[in-house]
């Protein structure tokens, strides 16, 4: 067991009350697997990632437990967490243009990532390692590119540099927070390939956060679907797509454009309504106000606990198995 998250909750004080960004999230990550976390903006997926890294804004309150290789991370001091960050757990941010320092060359940033955890290393070794990392993430002519600034790279190349920075110390867990969202589709595929190659070479466990189910289908072993700060469904990748057990997941899948349907005939499905605000979650199931299968008295009273629907497959819905499958209406 690499990572165990149990009953994780994250909240922020805001002017309009306490924002409960994440509530009661639990999941486990096995060594070497790739887990996808899907959800729309504000569903708490990035917050979960930042909580694991311990880089949430100071105002955040975190409760619950995050155990990495059995070691509790919640409540560790910043100093203790610094040892973990970058060396054991590393993160790739969404937009490499803003996540790379504009006034440092990519080489300096790669070298810094190594130096932080290996203070005694010589500068020749550092440079060699930085070149090696650039080469590893598929940047041609790394010897020369190493002295360039981030703005001299294309978007895809920058994201490769970001990945290079994150794997500088061969972390056991690599969190990729929407690594392909800012890129166009062909470059997305290349960057995902780089991630996959890195994973094969180093055996890193990957936690891939995205709102793109297509990316999940191609890369992940296991998937967690998040909605309004909580998990609604967790499954291996195939069961999630073929034995969908939660109406929200079904809605997401139905709203994907499909090659085998004529687009002209019918508009894409959309889930009606808007996700709730994190300062005012609805009582009961957070999805019920938008759910076509909600039943008054059952869905709006208690937060549904996870229900096992198959091997390693849970859905947080009280009407699991009852609601009619198929294309939602």
């Amino acid at each position: 067991m690499l990572l165990e998250v149990e009953n994780l909750s994250i909240s922020f004080p805001t002017e309009s009350g306490i924002a409960r960004a994440v509530e009661g999230v639990s999941f486990r990550l096995l060594e070497g697997e790739t887990m996808g976390i899907v959800g729309e903006s504000g569903s708490g997926k990035s917050m979960t990632a930042m909580a694991i890294m311990g880089i949430l804004p100071r105002a955040a309150t975190v409760t619950g437990s995050i155990r990495f290789r059995g070691r509790e991370l919640v409540g560790l001091s910043d100093e203790e967490l610094r040892e973990v960050r970058g060396r054991d757990i590393a993160i790739v941010f969404q937009d490499a243009l803003t996540a790379l320092n504009p006034v440092m060359t990519v080489g300096e940033q790669l070298m810094e990532a190594v130096r932080v955890h290996r203070p005694g290393i010589t500068s020749a070794q550092l440079r060699a390692r930085a070149v090696e990392l650039l080469d590893l993430v598929g940047i041609p002519d790394p010897e020369r590119r190493i002295d360039r600034y981030p703005h001299e790279f294309s978007g895809g190349m920058r994201q490769r540099v970001m990945i290079g920075v994150s794997i500088a110390n061969e972390p056991d867990l690599l969190i990729a927070d929407e690594p392909t969202t800012a890129l166009d589709v062909t470059v997305q595929a290349q960057v995902l390939d780089v991630l996959r190659e890195v994973q094969q070479r180093t055996g890193t466990t990957v936690m891939l956060i995205t709102h793109d189910l297509g990316v999940i289908a191609g890369v992940a072993d296991r998937v967690i679907v998040m909605y309004a700060g909580g998990i609604v469904e967790a499954a291996d990748v195939d069961p999630l797509f073929y034995e969908t057990a939660h109406p929200y997941t079904a809605g997401l899948l139905a709203s994907l454009p499909r090659m085998d349907r004529r687009s002209g005939d019918e508009p894409l499905y959309q889930i009606p309504g808007q996700p709730p605000l994190s300062t005012a979650w609805p009582a009961g199931c957070r999805f019920f106000p938008r759910c076509a299968h909600a039943v008054a008295g059952r869905c709006d009273t208690v937060v549904p606990p996870p229900v096992t629907v198959g091997a390693d497959h849970t859905a947080n819905c009280v009407r699991v198995g009852e609601w009619p499958k198929g294309v939602p209406t």
Binding site: E83, R85, G86, A99, E112, V116, H117
Partner: peptide
């Protein structure tokens, strides 16, 4: 955030 993410003090 990225710098914090690599464990920088």
């Amino acid at each position: 955030d990225a710098a914090r993410g690599i464990g920088a003090s």
